[in-house]
Amino acid sequence: MAIPHIILFGLFAVICSVALAADHSPLQDICVADLAGPVLVNGRPCKDPKLAQADDFFFSGLHMPGNTTNTFGSSVNLVSVAKVPGLNTLGISMARLDYAPWGLNPPHTHPRATEVFTVLEGSFYVGFVTSNPENRLISKVLQKGDAFVFPVGLIHFERNIGHTNGVAIASLSSQNPGAISIGSAVFGSKPDISNVILAHAFQVGKNVTNRIKARF
């Protein structure tokens, strides 16, 4: 028995609506985030557009080097909607990344954003790992002026492989990309993940997981 055209049309509409259920395009010129607003939404509520000011779309400080005197020798200055309310609903953000010689931005993911990593100064070894079951490492050495793409959600890293300081700019396809550092998330969670679970997952003894936890 043939399915009526109206049912086929309905199924097509449902399929299309699911396929398009990603971040939506803005429905108005601006939606400056009300960072102090009490309303909780998936994103940020908008304040009255008539109250928008130039400073809602402005940030100063990307010319300032970050502090790289830490364990990893790297620093990230993220310019997201939390710092520039005018980014709300626009689906973009950026960051300045500074690296000491041999500094590392350790393996991490951005759950809501693809990243374009562009080298301004220095030489970098970068890469990302595809998902199971392949777990394929795709990596490359970058020089000044080079750019590399890290697909959304995939674990990636960057290491300065030169004897001088390195600087890069990251462009991200979300106003709030998020960052999950693998080491600190797994070994520095609060409350902590049981050593029984970690020892089993990483196929090591509990004494090893205890030592790693102490570092985080």
Rank of each mutant, 00 (worst) to 15 (best):
P101M: 02
F57Y: 02
S174H: 11
M94F: 10
A54Y: 00
D146R: 10
P111S: 04
A113I: 01
T68G: 01
S123G: 05
S17C: 12
I92V: 13
G91A: 02
V167L: 14
K144C: 10
P191R: 05
K213W: 06
A199R: 07
I7Q: 03
G183M: 12
N207Q: 13
T209M: 06
A214I: 00
P38L: 08
G127Y: 07
A201C: 10
V32N: 10
R44C: 06
I169W: 06
L104E: 02
G43W: 09
P151Y: 08
F9Q: 15
L8T: 10
S173K: 08
G166H: 10
V41C: 07
R159L: 13
N176W: 08
P45I: 04
L51F: 03
F202Y: 13
C16M: 14
I161L: 09
V39K: 12
G162V: 10
L142P: 11
G188C: 08
A168L: 05
Q175L: 05
F202E: 10
L120C: 06
G122C: 08
Y125F: 15
V196P: 01
Y99R: 01
G91I: 02
R96F: 02
N70R: 00
A95S: 11
R112Y: 04
F150H: 08
I169M: 15
I182K: 01
D23S: 14
K144P: 08
A82R: 07
S25H: 14
M1G: 14
S181T: 14
V81S: 02
F117A: 03
N207I: 00
W102Y: 12
R112W: 03
I7L: 09
L27T: 15
N67A: 02
F12L: 15
A36T: 12
S174N: 15
N207L: 06
A214H: 11
G188E: 07
G188K: 07
Q28P: 03
F58Y: 12
F148Q: 04
L104T: 05
S189C: 05
Q28E: 15
I7R: 03
M94S: 04
L172P: 05
V186A: 14
T164P: 00
L51V: 02
H110S: 02
F124S: 04
G91H: 01
L40M: 09
L90W: 00
I155T: 15
L154V: 12
P133E: 09
G183P: 04
D55W: 02
W102I: 00
F150K: 07
L120K: 07
T209F: 06
T109A: 09
T130Q: 10
K140L: 11
M94P: 00
I161D: 09
H156A: 09
I155W: 11
